[in-house]
Write a protein that binds this DNA or RNA. Structure first.
Lengths: 229, 229
DNA sequence: GAGTGGTCTAGACCACGTT
DNA sequence: ACGTGGTCTAGACCACTCT
């Protein structure tokens, strides 16, 4: 049978795992491996390229390919649309708009999104429920200079995330995770106690060099975000 | 000049972003695109494959290629070795072993790592500092059935993570992020107040079907984990 | 059965970066 | 200067899966 890039990749990885090629060591070049595995260079290349993408090896022209000294740990999280996430738990999803107002962007938001002075933003507070239980508290700010049409949208039925995904399906974003304490207001919506630990996700979204939206998502106490690799 | 897969990829993405091909719509097949871009099929294939890897499009034999209905948001975090992370902040890294003891694995740990009854584990508490300030509190458990040589290691100089990376550089892992409150003991090490919100990272590591280690990392209040995409 | 993507081959040229 | 990886080509066969 013909040699597949997956076989080559698995064999190279096995050699690294076994320690045949230790950290920092030079891996044979593509032409040599072509003979080792008796296959075309493109096959070896794809195997090596994927290993490099996964952070197992490091490749440099002329210098060759080496096993990485320290494995870069990569954790990839798939962040599904909230409705799907909740329905995947066999729970019923419910959305509710708490408040909506046009405001002047506060300073901290202007700084974060690099907005001009006196920029108008749409400030939404929303709740997301799973089987009727509070799941996520959404504090959303939309840049009305960039998305003036947001003024006319009725967000009592359609969640801002769903609307934004339809307006700007592809965008640049910065995500960060952190921990915070539930404040007075949040305790009411999340049905928890003041001072409970809250897992926070923040996301700023950009499109065509312009800030579109910033959102701060506060999760019910005990929320975990998990991934395998 | 020759057409590169990057150009093809960028152009296809631009068409999707502009809405020429909307969510759920069929994208032309590879042979057609080969003519559109006047290049080899392998070039189109690589462009499309990468877009599929990034969750932009969905490909199925015979059925063709479609723009994804709902973009899967993927957040990829590079988790560097702590020393590197701290030194990247231009801070001096310092490590300290707080305690070390061989114990019988508590029930919650046995359940998590699927350990047999009466399994011995090495329990380490360590601190990591940046410029002398507490940065991370490490609560580490090592499965001594799988790694008996850990009994003989002096962890007062070498951090358990560094040692484990040298023993089992490649492994399966489960990572999770959550929020918790600082308890009495932690406040002393992290120099914070009881009830401060703490960002928690937990990681269970497996190798050859066997649990190697579980670690719970508690970060100083205010810690954030950030990524862009 | 037939259309589509998945992959391999053999050869070629080129860009980069080390020497 | 030259060795290595990065990429493109043109053609081929195959695997999957929809109809």
């Amino acid at each position: 049978m013909r040699v597949t890039y997956k076989e080559v990749k698995a064999d190279i990885l096995a050699k690294i795992v076994r320690g045949d090629w230790g950290p920092g060591e030079l891996v044979p070049n593509e032409m040599d491996l072509t003979e080792t595995y008796n296959c075309a260079r493109a096959t070896v290349n794809r195997a090596m390229r994927e290993l490099a993408d996964e952070g197992i090896i490091e490749r440099r022209r002329k210098a060759g390919t080496r096993v990485r000294e320290t494995r870069i740990l990569q954790a990839k999280f798939d962040i599904p649309v909230l409705r799907n996430e909740i329905e995947a738990l066999n729970a019923e999803y419910r959305y509710s708009l708490v408040s909506s107002s046009v405001e002047n962007a506060p300073d901290w938001l202007r700084a974060r999104l690099q907005l001009p002075k006196a920029a108008d933003v749409l400030h939404l507070i929303c709740m997301h429920y799973a089987d009727g239980n509070p799941y996520q508290y959404e504090d959303r700010w939309i840049n009305l200079d960039a998305l003036p049409q947001a003024r006319e949208i009725d967000f009592s039925k359609l969640g801002p995330n769903d609307w934004l995904m339809s307006e700007i399906p592809y965008s640049e974003a910065e995500i960060s995770f952190s921990a915070a304490l539930a404040d007075k207001e949040m305790t009411e919506f999340l049905e928890c106690a003041v001072g409970d630990p809250i897992f926070i996700v923040e996301r700023s979204t950009w499109h065509a060099e312009q800030a579109m939206t910033y959102v701060r998502l506060s999760h019910k106490p005990g929320h975990r975000m998990t991934t395998r690799y």
